[in-house]
Amino acid sequence: MSSRYAMVIDTAKCVGCMDCVVACKTENNVPEGYNRDWIVQDVRGTWPTLHMEIRSERCNQCDEPPCVETCPTGASHVHDRGGVVLVTKELCVGCKACIAACPYDARFIHPDGYADKCTFCIHRVEQGLDPACVAVCPTRCMTFGDINDPNSQVAKLLTSRKWHTLKAEAGTKPSVYYLT
């Protein structure tokens, strides 16, 4: 079976410190005012009986990515390794169709005129490294790997823990999983 990269994020351990966001910015030279990943604090209940899930969010690297479907130039595409969704910036005309199609608001137009977003740090992954956000996280709440490999840490976490994905009802089959 071919590889399918996934990220499994343990919301019980995440403190929402934004180290993942900062590391992404320096690693990928993300311009000021833009982010490829971000933190959500999902608060439920009323004081003092409250529940809060903290999530590090990013492009969900969907199995059925509407951004790729909708891209008129073929700039948005599925990479030949791990199912990662990438943008070939030279082919992108900045039409924003992908931004409209993404249910996660994960994309933005880079000041240089092309659609940009999380790449799962494929440049690092192909050197055998974890994505920058995973590598820096002080709480070690993020795990990256090949979900099609039953011996991988990500596969094991999903069989041993409860999890959810974001907007599962959108039918995009996300590859970012949140442990609860």
């Binding site: 410190c17 180290d19 900062v22 590391a23 320096t26 590598a135 820096v136 996280c137 002080p138």
Partner: peptide, 11 residues
């Protein structure tokens, strides 16, 4: 082996 966000942002 892991800094906090301020340390990472020390750049």
């Amino acid at each position: 082996g892991r800094l906090c966000p301020r340390g990472t942002g020390g750049v």
